[in-house]
């Protein structure tokens, strides 16, 4: 019994200690951001590797999610004779929820895990130490550009996800199931609000981008520098990011659409 309590206490303390280290790292990253201003190339390179290289998985997933939404939405709406509203259903589901959330989950699997593994291996192969000994701060040179790149890429990827999703829904609804094309677009235009829906979706994906890259970069930097340690860190990145994104999504949704 006492052992159990002791273990619980130790684990609890461990969680807070890691949270503290992660926060300190974030402060270090943010305080070093100004050094990136004269060197945009460092960020652009990372936007390429975390953003552009994630495009394929985002576009393919977005298309299928949109197609499924079109099919399921149609089947429900047609019972009420409301299939004209399919465009609204597809667009709102994507812009408010699925776009930011699914993109963040895919991002964790595709880019977050890669970031953690890369940074963790740089640590394991003493590259981070070597940078320090060359009087180059690894937090500013390696971590900060990756953090900013993830933060920039996430809303862009979410926007692309939503856009191709709407097209996927259009393909199934209008192309295959015979919904009126004019109704699909015009109802969407009418009912999707720029502030309430689009901006809130963008805010969500900015928040997810922040959290996802923060976790990925921290886990890599904090990894035990062995192959086992890096593998554990990579797993933790995907698990923690997924949980954090889903939890945060509920909080943000409640704040945005709660009343």
């Amino acid at each position: 019994m006492l052992d159990l309590l002791q273990n619980l206490g130790r684990r609890g303390l461990g969680v807070f200690e890691r949270l503290g280290r992660a926060s300190l790292l974030l402060v270090q990253i943010l305080s070093g951001l100004h050094t990136l201003l004269p060197r945009p190339r460092l960020v652009i390179q990372q936007v390429f590797s975390v953003g552009v290289l994630s495009l394929v998985i985002i576009v393919v997933s977005g298309t299928f999610v949109g197609m499924v939404l079109g099919l399921q939405g149609y089947n429900t709406l047609v019972d009420f004779g409301a299939e004209e509203s399919l465009g609204v259903v597809v667009a709102l589901s994507l812009v408010r929820e699925l776009g930011p959330v699914v993109t963040a989950l895919l991002f964790a699997g595709r880019a977050g895990s890669a970031l953690t593994a890369e940074i963790g291996l740089m640590k394991a192969t003493e590259q981070l130490s070597a940078l320090e000994m060359m009087a180059v701060d690894p937090v500013r040179r390696v971590l900060a550009p990756r953090f900013i790149a993830g933060f920039i890429s996430m809303p862009l990827l979410a926007a692309i996800f939503s856009a191709v999703g709407v097209l996927g829904g259009y393909f199934v609804g209008v192309g295959l199931l015979g919904v009126d094309e004019g109704a699909y677009w015009s109802q969407m235009q009418d009912k999707v609000d720029l502030y309430d829906d689009v901006y809130n979706g963008v805010i969500k994906s900015l928040a997810f981008g922040w959290v996802a890259t923060w976790i990925a970069v921290f886990e890599g930097h904090d990894a035990v520098p062995t192959s086992e340690g890096v593998s554990r860190a990579t797993t933790r990145t995907v698990v923690y990011t997924s949980l954090a994104v889903l939890g945060l999504d509920f909080v943000l949704t409640a704040l945005m659409f709660g009343d």
Binding site: M122, T125, E126, Q127, S129, A130, L131, E132, M133, M134, A135, D137
Partner: peptide, 19 residues
């Protein structure tokens, strides 16, 4: 410390080249 390190070179066991 960073200023002082510019005057020291260090050769790590496996080179630690940026891959």
């Amino acid at each position: 410390l960073y200023e002082l390190r510019k005057r020291m070179g260090m050769l790590f066991q496996n080179g630690a080249l940026l891959t």
